[in-house]
């Protein structure tokens, strides 16, 4: 079976500067994949090449097996794309705009009204159907862009920062929507906001400075890259006890009233981690420190991301 999205050794150079450097990845049918990287990492450039808005210096990109250069119409027909800035025509009403887009994408006259209705339902913009786009808030514009990507019911969706500028409720709705699209649709969404990937993606591709730095399940990446944490809440003088346990490293401590919240780094290995926790509790008890809670901290993708993309670690974690 051909992959829904396949990117092969993609490189885009501007002079000597490589915006995208030898990037390869695949997205299987029905998969929801997050394309992660800090600003300026080459996310949008890669996506633009993928949707056929930019030519690559070398390498290939295919949508549903159609090469975006050799067979652009077939590739574009299978595609719903939402660019980062969500450019829209301000003088049109939402419904007019979506009808225009549906017609452009080859949705037949008979199917157009229902296609527009369905897209507006999914993106939850029915209430602004007859509003001029120029009067819409940023969050609504974003959702109009999403409805536009969905209007031709494409098999592949490429969304560049789909939740930028939305309020928390809207973000949750959009994440749920994206999740629900998986299975039937293939979704590649770019973001620099990590919880987004954790919330809606089954797999993540990490890019930095134009290079692919990691690939895997959000959870896997997290376990793979950051040493597990221990969150300890204590009362009393804890410093000496913690210092005695060589296996743990104090990362952070904050005081709330007479209670101290400690974040400690523990060894990567699971057995070592357990031993370290035992030793720490022993040491704290020996010093008469009162322990209120000991919990395994979950490393967020945010931290993984910093670890992955910080200069010295890039080579070692590259997959």
């Amino acid at each position: 079976m051909t992959a829904a999205i396949s990117v092969e050794k993609l490189t885009k150079r501007y002079g000597v500067h490589a915006a995208v450097d030898d990037v390869s990845f695949e997205v299987a049918r029905g998969e929801v994949v997050g394309f992660l990287g800090p600003n300026g990492a080459g996310k949008s450039t890669t996506l633009r090449i993928l949707v056929g808005f930019l030519g690559a210096t070398s390498g290939r990109a295919r949508i549903e097996g159609h090469d975006v250069v050799d067979d652009p119409d077939a590739a574009r027909s299978a595609l719903g794309y939402m660019p980062e800035a969500v450019p829209l025509y301000p003088e049109m009403r939402v419904r007019e705009y979506l009808r225009f887009r549906a017609e452009l994408k080859g949705v037949g006259r008979a199917a157009r009204v229902s296609a527009v209705g369905r897209a507006m339902d999914l993106a939850r913009i029915k209430d602004v159907a007859d509003t001029l786009i120029e009067h819409l808030s940023k969050g609504y514009r974003q959702r109009v862009g999403l409805a536009d990507a969905l209007v031709s019911d494409p098999r592949v969706l490429v969304l560049d920062e789909p939740t930028a500028g939305m309020d928390p409720n809207q973000i949750r709705e959009v994440r749920d929507l994206i999740k629900s699209l998986g299975g039937e649709h293939t979704v590649l969404l770019s973001t620099h906001i990590l919880p987004e990937v954790e919330a809606s993606c089954a797999r993540v591709v990490v890019i930095d400075k134009g290079r692919l730095v990691a690939e895997g399940k959000p959870g896997e990446l997290a376990r793979l890259r950051t040493p597990p944490r221990l969150e300890v809440i204590v009362r009393g003088t804890w410093k000496a006890a913690v210092a005695r346990v060589a296996e743990v490293k104090l990362l952070d401590s904050r005081t709330e009233g007479d209670v101290e919240h400690l974040t400690l780094e523990t060894p990567m290995d699971e057995d070592d981690r357990a031993t370290a926790a035992e030793k720490l509790v022993e040491a704290l008890v020996a010093d008469g420190v009162r322990i209120r809670s000991v919990a395994a901290g979950k490393a967020t993708l945010e931290e993984v991301f910093t670890a992955l993309t910080s200069e010295e670690k890039v080579e070692e974690v590259a997959t």
């Binding site: 633009r48 949707v51 056929g52 808005f53 652009p72 119409d73 077939a74 574009r76 027909s77 595609l79 794309y81 660019p83 800035a85 450019p87 829209l88 025509y89 301000p90 887009r101 452009l104 994408k105 080859g106 536009d148």
Partner: peptide, 14 residues
């Protein structure tokens, strides 16, 4: 200027 050229040209139009 507005960037709509990007949405326009990424549809299957010649």
């Amino acid at each position: 200027r507005s960037g709509t050229i990007e949405t326009l040209l990424t549809t299957p139009v010649s």
